[in-house]
Design a protein around this nucleic acid. Sequence first.
RNA 1: GGCCCGUUCGUCUAAGGGCUAGGACACCACCCUUUCACGGUGGUGAUACGGGUUCGAAUCCCGUACGGGCUACCA
Length: 508
Amino acid sequence: MSKKVRVRFAPSPTGGLHLGGVRTVLYNFLFAKKYNGEFIVRIEDTDQSRYVPGAEEYIFDCLKWCGLEPDESVQHGGKFGPYRQSERKELYRQYAEKLVESGHAYYAFDTTEELEKMRLDFKTDQNPSPQYDHRLRMKMRNSLTLAADEVSKLIKSGVGYVIRIKIPENETVSFSDMIRGEVKFETSLVDDKVLLKADGMPTYHLAVVVDDYLMKISHAFRGEEWLPSAPVHILLWQYLFGLDKMPQWAHFPLILGPNGKLSKRDGAKYGFPVFAMNWTDPKTNELTEGFKEKGFLPEAFINLLALLGWNDGSEQEVFSKEELIEKFSMERVHSGGAHFDYEKAKWFNHEWIKRSDPGQLNNEVKNILVSNGITITNSNLLEKIIALVKDRCTLLTDFVSQASFFFETPKNIDTASILPKWNEQKQLFFRELIRTYKLTSTWNAETIEKALKEIAAMHQLKPGELMLPLRVMLVGGKFGPGVFEIAELIGKDETVSRIATTMSLLSK
RNA sequence: GGCCCGUUCGUCUAAGGGCUAGGACACCACCCUUUCACGGUGGUGAUACGGGUUCGAAUCCCGUACGGGCUACCA
C-alpha cells in the first residue's frame, strides 16, 4: 500500500442499521485494521426531511456494540471534520460552482411539475423512464438553454435551482473494482444527475467525491446498489481532483432475504432480527428487532456477517475479530448476493456461547436474568451455573429457561410426566430420600447420587426409574443438565423442599 | 424498456483447465446420554440451459434463461 489506508462508512441517519449496513461497516473496518489504517464514519444527513431524531446516536451505539469503533467521526473527533454533512454544506457548493465554471455542470431551473411533465411527455414503451440526459437537456430550462442574463436574473430572483452534472456523450469510463475487476460504462447512457439540490445540500454523488478527497480516503467500499452511479463519480473525480487521486473501489454484493432483497418487513414476517439493535422509529413507533436484544453475542454477530459473502478459503467458520482482521482480503469477497439464513446465524451464536468462558458471559447472562425478574446475589454461583448450562443455549435469552430454576422454585411442575408411573413404592422412597438428605453433612453431586442409589437399592427400585421424577421435582420439567449437579447447586434445603412440594402435589 | 451486476446441494460456500465436485447450516438415521441438549458416525442433496475453445471445462469465450440492482432535488 503506497499511501495510508483510510476507509469510510457513511450511514444516513434515516433509521435503523440493517445487516447489509453492518456488513459494509465490518468489511471497511477489517480492511482498515488489516493495513493499520483508519476507519472513518461520516454522517450523510443530506436530506433534512428524511432525518430521524435519535438515528445518528443509534448508529454509533450499534457500532460500539459490534466492537467496530471508528477512529474518526462526529463522536470520536479527527482532523478532517466536520463529519456531519449538513455542517459541510458550504464546502460542496464551491465545488459545484467550480464544475459550472469549467463547463462540466450547469444550473437547472425546472420545477418538479416540469420534470414530471417531461417524464410523461417522453415516456414510450421502449423508454418507460426518460432521463434528464444529453438527449433532453436542451429541451429543458437550464443555463445551457437560457440566455446568460436570464440565468443570472433567475438566480438573483431567488427561485429554486439545482446544479446538474453535464455528462459527456460517447465516452467510455471504467474503473477496476477490487472484487469484480474491470467495469465499463457508456456515458451516453448516463443521465445528468443533480449534484447540488435546491436547498443547497449536496446529493450523495457530490458529497461522496468531495468528502473522499478532502478526507484523504484511500479505499472506498460500498454496496452493489451504487455500481450504476459509479460513472458519475468517476467523471466527478476526473473533473475535480484527477483520476489518479480516486480511491480504490469495491462494491459488495447484496444480502438477500428468503424471498429476494432483505427488508425490514422480513424480520417481522419470518421471525428474525434484521437490525443490529432494537430500533423504534419515532415517527411510526414501529419496532424493528435487533440481534443484540434477540440474544446474540456481538462476536457471533460480526462472525456470521463476515462469512456472508466472504471466506478465507479454508474450512474454518468461527473467527474472532482479530482473526478476521488478519485473514480478511477484499479479493475473496464474493460478487454474488447471499441469502441470509437465520438457522445458520443461530448456529454461529451457539458456537460462540459454547466457546466462551463462563466468566465472560457472566454480565450478559446476569442482565438477562435480572430483566426477567430473577434476583442474583451470588455471582460465583452464577458462573458455575453458566458453565453447566451454556452448551444448551443457542441464544443468550435461552439462559432464562435453562438457568432460572437454579434461582427460584419452579412455578409449574410437569407432574403429568411423573404421574403415570407414580406409586406407593416411589412415594416411600422419596420420603426416605428427604430424611436422608436432611441428615447429610457433605452436600455435593457425588454424595447426593450415592445416597439416592443406596436408598433405591433398599427399596428394590432401579435408579433409572427415579431420575425422571427427581428431575421434574427439581427443575419443573424434562430438561436441564445432570440432576445431581443441579441439586448440589441449589443446595440441600431447597432440594429437600422441592421434593416435598412436588410430593404433596402428586398426592392430591 | 435501457444499463449494470450476478448464477455450484434448500441455504452459506470450497475447488482459479485435470482423481468418485469438498465443508458448514438445515433435514434424516444410528451411537453416546438414567431428561433435554452437547458430542460422534453415516446418509439424502448441486455445477441453470445451449453452443464453442481444449486431450480434458464448474472453471475460459459466446448466446439464452433466471435472479438482483439502478433508472429521484433518496441514500
